[in-house]
Design a protein around this nucleic acid. Sequence first.
DNA 1: GTCTATACGTAGATAGAC
DNA 2: GTCTATCTACGTATAGAC
Lengths: 196, 196
Amino acid sequence: MWGSVAPEASRRLLLAAVDSFAELGYHGTSTRHIAAGAGMSAGALYVHYKTKADLLFQIALTVHRSVLATLREAVATGSAPPARVRALMYAFSSWHATHYKAARVIQNEMAALGPEHAAEIAVFRRETRELVLSEVRAGAASGDFDVADLAATARALSSLAIDVCRWYRPEGPRTPDEIGALNAHLAMRVLGAAAP
Amino acid sequence: MWGSVAPEASRRLLLAAVDSFAELGYHGTSTRHIAAGAGMSAGALYVHYKTKADLLFQIALTVHRSVLATLREAVATGSAPPARVRALMYAFSSWHATHYKAARVIQNEMAALGPEHAAEIAVFRRETRELVLSEVRAGAASGDFDVADLAATARALSSLAIDVCRWYRPEGPRTPDEIGALNAHLAMRVLGAAAP
DNA sequence: GTCTATACGTAGATAGAC
DNA sequence: GTCTATCTACGTATAGAC
C-alpha cells in the first residue's frame, strides 16, 4: 500500500504518523513525536510535508485508494452475486485486519480534515458505499438474496467489515484470513442467501 | 441518563463536553470551548471538575452505566433465547442511535483515559461483552441458534449495534426504533434462528 | 461559584548553519 | 535534507477579586 510514497524519508514519516494517529489520534499526536518515530528531528518533517494536516491528508488518500482497489479486485473474481459478495466481504474484512492501524486512522480521524480535503476524501467513501450497495442490490434482483432494506443491509455489512480494525490485534486468536472467511459467512446469512 | 449528575452547572459542563468530545475528540477540545458551551468562563470549569481528564472519566462512568443497565433490562423482558436476543439487539441498537453523541465519546475517546481510569472502565466493557456472549451461548445450547464461533458471532452482533452511533444522524431517514427493529431482525439471521 | 488575569508548558511551524 | 534554535500561539490549570 505504501509503495507509491517516495522518497523513503517521506514514507518513514508517513508510517510513523499512521502508527501515532492510530494510537493517540491526530490531535493527540505532536509533529515532534512523528518525526522522532521516523528517526528525524522536529524540523525535518516540514521538508517533506507542508503541514501536519497535509500529512493526514496524504495518509487518507493513500489508504482510501488501497481499500477501494482491494474491493474492486475482489468483486471482479466472481460472477454470480453470492460469490461476488463472499469475495467482497472476505477482502473487506481481512484488509481491515491486516491494515488495522491505517484503517483506524481513516475511520477515526477524518473529522480532523479541513473542508476541502474532507470533500475529496468523501468521494472515495461514497464510491465504497456504492460498491457494496450495488452488489447487494444485484443479488436481491437476481433472487439470490432476500433483503428487505437494501441500504440498511449494505450498511450492516460494511459495519461488520470495518469494525474489524477496531478490535483486531495481531496477537489475537484469529488470523485476517479467518476473520475474512467468518464475515463472508455471516454476510450470506444476513442476506438470506441459501446455505451452500 | 444525566439525571444523576448534579448540581445543574456540573451537568451543563458535562453535556457541553459530550457534544464537543463527540465532534472534535478529547484532544481536539479545549477546556475553554467546553466552558463556553456551558455558558461559563474558562476558570469556572475547575470548580466542578478537577481536570479535563476527570471530566472525561465522569462521562465514561455515566454512559457505561447507562448502556449496561439498558441491556440488562432488555434481556430481562424475554424468557426464550430468541426473544431475549431480539430485545437485546433492539435495545443495544436503538440506544446507540438515541444517545449517539455519548456513545461516540465512549467508543472513540477511551484511549485518552489514564491507566487507572481505563482499568475501571474496562470492567463495564467486559461485562457488556459477557452479557451478549452469554445470551448467544444460551441460544446455541438450547438449539434455537446455529452458531459456529460463539465469541466471534457475539462480537459481530456488538459491532452491528455499536456502529450505529458512528453513522446515525437525527435528520436521517430511520428512527432509533426502526434501526433497533432492523438490527434485531439481522441478528436472528446471523444466529441462524428459524424465521418467526 | 463565577469572573478576570496570569503562570507555565507545549504545540505547530520557520530560520539559518552545516 | 537534516540539524538546532527560536518565534508565536494556545493549551491546561491556578490565583485572587467580587
